[in-house]
């Protein structure tokens, strides 16, 4: 029965209607196309990974040798000294600890409060469900602006404090909608039976609904973690006055800014050639910056294998109509 000859009153779903894979012949056209396509896609993949591999190679290369240029994806004069210097810099060490701490706190508070609110908003009987949802959804579009937000943090007395990192991002409206939609899809019988057994709303949320939401919480948590780790503007705006609160992305941004200015002032970037000393050890800004870039990128690259398993499903959950 050929599927093309059958009239279908109902269009089959793409998933179910996919016919069994047929063997295709290797025609000349197919051979040519497949090899060209494969070549192109492999080249694209190389373009995607090359900049990182190059930076990795420079960071593992001797600093003085690196300024001669021409390093590809393999260090020419292997040396771990850049990392030694970077990890011995108090600022970078502080920044690494602060970035980690901040990410952990942001993920924990954001998941806790966002899911708690999502649970309330997912209950059909909840009286203020709609106005509250609307107020949160509108904040997806409305932003008072950088300086008004800064003034609020200042007036709340949170400048140069750890609170400025996690309090303003305690709830994300978009994740709220995702979670609420997911919780709505959980059969009502489950919450009903919990109530029969005498569980209150809070307990139903914490002990019944939260465990059921683990997959989506994992996805959201990973996204929140990446966002928090990658943030730099919060440090610049709110916490740049206290060196103890510095973060890796902010330190890297400062380094980038100074090298951009050096590059703009002299095309030959004399500053890039000059050796910098840190703790008596010599290296060059470019090698140092490469090492810090890697330190800032490595945690993301480490969680990436876990992320990539989940993010597509996360995107799909997010697209379910709310």
């Amino acid at each position: 029965m050929s599927s093309t000859s059958v009239a279908k009153p109902l269009a089959p779903s793409a998933a179910q209607g996919r016919p069994a894979r047929r063997r295709r012949r290797w025609t000349t056209e197919r051979v040519v196309f497949t090899s060209l396509n494969t070549t192109f896609l492999v080249a694209l993949a190389v373009i995607m990974v090359y900049p990182l591999l190059n930076t990795l190679a420079i960071s593992l290369n001797d600093g003085m040798d690196a300024v001669r240029g021409g390093i590809g994806i393999w260090p020419r004069v292997f040396s771990l000294r850049n990392y030694e210097i970077v990890l011995n810099m108090d600022t970078i060490y502080q920044a690494f600890i602060m970035s980690t701490l901040k990410t952990v706190v942001v993920v924990a508070t954001n998941l806790f409060f966002t899911s708690m609110l999502a649970f309330a908003l997912s209950r059909k009987e909840f009286i203020f469900r709609r106005p509250i949802t609307l107020i949160f959804v509108l904040t997806l579009y409305f932003d008072a602006g950088l300086i008004p937000n800064y003034l609020l943090i200042k007036d709340l007395g949170m400048l140069n404090s750890f609170q400025a990192y996690w309090v303003p991002v305690m709830i994300s409206a978009f994740n709220l909608i995702i979670l609420r939609t997911y919780m709505k899809s959980i059969p009502e019988e489950i919450t009903e039976s919990a109530r029969m057994d005498g569980a209150g709303d809070f307990r139903t949320w914490w002990q019944i609904i939260m465990p059921l939401c683990k997959p989506v919480l994992a996805v959201i948590g990973l996204f929140v973690a990446v966002g928090s780790w990658n943030a730099w503007l919060d440090t610049l705006l709110y916490n740049s006055g206290d060196p103890a609160l510095t973060t890796l992305q902010y330190e890297l941004q400062k380094l980038l800014a100074s090298s951009m200015n050096a590059g703009a002032n002299s095309a030959n970037s004399a500053a890039n050639q000059a050796a910098v000393g840190a703790g008596g050890q010599l290296t060059t800004p470019i090698a140092l910056r490469s090492a810090i870039t890697m330190v800032a990128a490595v945690p993301i690259l480490l969680v990436y294998p876990f992320l990539q398993k989940h993010f597509v499903s996360g995107l799909m959950i997010g697209s379910v109509k709310g």
Partner: peptide
């Protein structure tokens, strides 16, 4: 992060002597 991407871009687009 954008900081890392901008850093990579600035290296990629610089003079050969800067990588």
């Amino acid at each position: 992060s954008w900081v890392i991407v901008a850093s990579l871009a600035s290296v990629a687009l610089s003079m050969p002597s800067s990588g």
